[in-house]
Design a binder for these strands. Structure first.
Length: 276
DNA sequence: CCTTAGACCTGGAGGC
DNA sequence: TGCCTCCAGGTCTAAG
């Protein structure tokens, strides 16, 4: 479910609720969630660690603990829930952290795609092995239009695939990629080689604007009925094209069409968005 | 180097 | 009600 903005909202909420808490115990019910060490090792490495700092790079959540960095990727459906007592329905809970104030911090993930990694704490988080193929976060000042232009203009790929490429600018996912293309008046199927510097200025400007606006509204909630930690946002009301097949374009009134681009459902107003 | 299909998982929605 | 197919906010891999 989450793209950069939703991950940021989750992070903000967790920071407000568990900063300073100490992990007293950890239980793992689906071992594959833990990626870089065994589940057993993960539990012992987390034990007695305190949540100190909270950060995000692209779609990754980072928790700086007393001596470790805990890195979580929620993938499609991962969520954190905080409970005052142990939940009765443990069906999709795969990891449970029991904190020193009695909170049960539960990792819930219907499709089991999410992953957790734990490392010895380091200062430069970008150097952690999980971030090897992750570029600059969309909030990073190094994520400029020039950098984006230099990264894509030799590529034969379609524009949308470049926007989704986490090794260039990290944090954009399928919904926001459609919205960025719509705001920039560009067809996501356009070839990167044909995207001008001027286009890149627009694309990076709207990437930052749309993702930051979404954070301010608590993120986007579609196809989701549960209100997990901070994931019931309001930005879905501001979407222009995504998930609006058959509806009129908010600018020109033309019918929004759906295509498949890079194996992802993609929504376009073919009147407003120019194919290059 | 690039693109594409498939894999990883579960459940909701819609067709019959 | 049941069965079937398609679809889903992500990413990695193998194969061409």
């Amino acid at each position: 479910m989450p793209e950069g903005p939703e991950v940021q909202v989750v992070l903000n909420t967790l920071e407000a609720n568990i900063q300073g808490r100490v992990i007293q115990d950890v239980q793992v019910f689906y071992d594959k969630v833990i990626e870089n060490v065994s589940a057993k090792e993960f539990c012992s490495l987390c034990k007695n660690e305190q949540f100190r700092k909270f950060y995000r790079i692209g779609k990754y959540l980072g928790f700086e603990l007393s001596t470790k960095d805990l890195i979580v990727h929620l993938r499609m459906e991962g969520k954190f829930y905080l409970y005052k007592r142990k939940p009765i329905d443990m069906k999709h809970i795969h990891v449970m952290f029991i904190l020193d104030d009695g909170t049960y911090m539960c990792y819930h993930d219907t499709r089991k795609f999410g992953r957790m990694n734990i490392f010895d704490r380091i200062k430069d988080k970008h150097k952690l092995p999980v971030f090897k193929n992750v570029g600059y976060d969309f909030m990073d000042e190094r994520a400029t239009w020039k950098y984006f232009y230099d990264s894509i203009h030799h590529s034969k790929r379609q524009l949308k695939q470049a926007l989704l490429d986490q090794s260039i600018i990290a944090g954009v996912g399928n919904i926001y990629a459609d919205e960025i293309c719509f705001a920039s008046r560009l067809d996501p199927r356009s070839r990167c080689t044909r995207i001008s510097k001027k286009d890149c200025e627009k694309l990076v400007f709207y990437t930052k604007k749309i993702l930051n606006d979404s954070i301010a509204l608590g993120g986007t909630t579609i196809r989701s009925y549960t209100s997990s930690l901070g994931v019931t946002g309001l930005f879905q009301h501001d979407l222009g094209v995504h998930d609006k097949k058959g509806e009129p374009c908010p600018i020109c009134g033309n019918t929004i069409k759906k295509f498949v681009v890079g194996q992802r459902g993609t929504y376009i107003c073919q009147n407003c968005q120019k194919r290059k």
